[in-house]
């Protein structure tokens, strides 16, 4: 029998303590939920970026992942359901010095907020969108999402999901995102590096992170959290620059991870300055 002794714990602090609202930890996410890992990875990337922390802002929508904004010790905004991206758009345009990160979930960003996502990507708005994809509406108790696998069980698809899910990197690519990657929360080191890369790129960056929802997805689909992580370990293939059209999620066949798109295209602000402002100065 071993215990963690008190004096042993008092020494150093957690390296991310300076970036979290310690008075709000432990957070609300369930045991085994991967959002915390993705969130922690995002904070590590922010910390490692070497950029002025006061110039970061995190914007979230509604849902489990949407609660992230409430735990980061940066300027942070917990907005309405699906509206994180347009809110972030206004914030960024009002102060282009800000590094604006949208941290939210699949339901928020791609169902209710899907229209905003494609338009921000089309405009190449200079923001980084981090999407924790847990395949389900977790906060409301496990309803089918736009990302729920075909035939999976949810409270609103008790007989199995008759619909097919989005291929999110393909959607992001087709909409015009200039940086697109996918990882799982188990691939934390790659993820941290990827978020760091996305933060350093100008333009619309999108990273999808597969993450377990043990309570509202795993439980109904007979998947223990540890089994899901093993699946992330064993049934994934890292294939950078893969064709976005091949990125449907199918764990039987193997899920492709990696950085798929990394290109340069003028941002909304650059184009606005060039096309709108300069015309006026002639």
């Amino acid at each position: 029998m071993r215990y963690n002794s008190d004096n042993f714990m008092k020494k150093p602090e957690h390296p991310l303590n300076g970036l979290i609202r310690k008075d709000r930890i432990p957070h609300i996410w369930c045991s085994g939920c991967g959002i915390g890992t993705v969130f922690s990875s995002c904070l590590t990337s922010i910390k490692n970026s070497g950029l002025d922390l006061n110039k970061f802002a995190m914007v979230s929508g509604i849902g489990c992942s949407g609660r992230a904004a409430g735990y980061v010790k940066l300027d942070s905004f917990h907005t309405t359901h699906g509206r994180a991206i347009p809110f972030a758009t206004g914030l960024k345009l009002a102060n282009t010095d800000l590094n604006v990160i949208v941290f939210s979930g699949d339901g928020d960003l791609f169902a209710i907020g899907g229209n905003h996502f494609i338009h921000a990507a089309r405009r190449n708005m200079d923001i980084t969108v981090i999407c924790v994809n847990n395949f389900i509406y977790g906060m409301t108790g496990g309803q089918v999402a736009a990302t729920t696998p075909h035939s999976a069980i949810s409270t609103t698809t008790p007989f199995g999901n008759p619909e097919s899910p989005f291929n999110l990197p393909l959607l992001a690519y087709a909409s015009g995102a200039t940086y697109v990657a996918r990882w799982t929360m188990l691939h934390v080191r790659d993820l941290t590096e990827s978020i760091g890369e996305a933060l350093s790129r100008k333009g619309f960056s999108f990273i999808e992170i597969l993450s377990p929802c043990p309570i509202n997805y795993g439980r109904r689909n007979k998947k223990l959290p540890m089994e899901i992580l093993k699946m992330y370990q064993e049934n994934t293939i890292i294939k950078n620059n893969a064709d976005p059209a091949e990125l449907d999620i199918d764990f039987e066949r193997g899920v492709i991870l990696g950085k798929f798109i990394d290109k340069d295209r003028p941002t909304y602000t650059e184009n606005y300055d060039k096309i709108c402002r300069s015309t006026q100065n002639v």
């Binding site: 930890i25 939920c33 890992t37 922690s40 934390v188």
Partner: peptide
């Protein structure tokens, strides 16, 4: 540091 980075809870770290 893998325990530190995989932990969803900011509950473990190594030095």
């Amino acid at each position: 540091h893998y325990c530190e980075v995989i932990c969803p809870e900011f509950a473990i770290f190594s030095v």
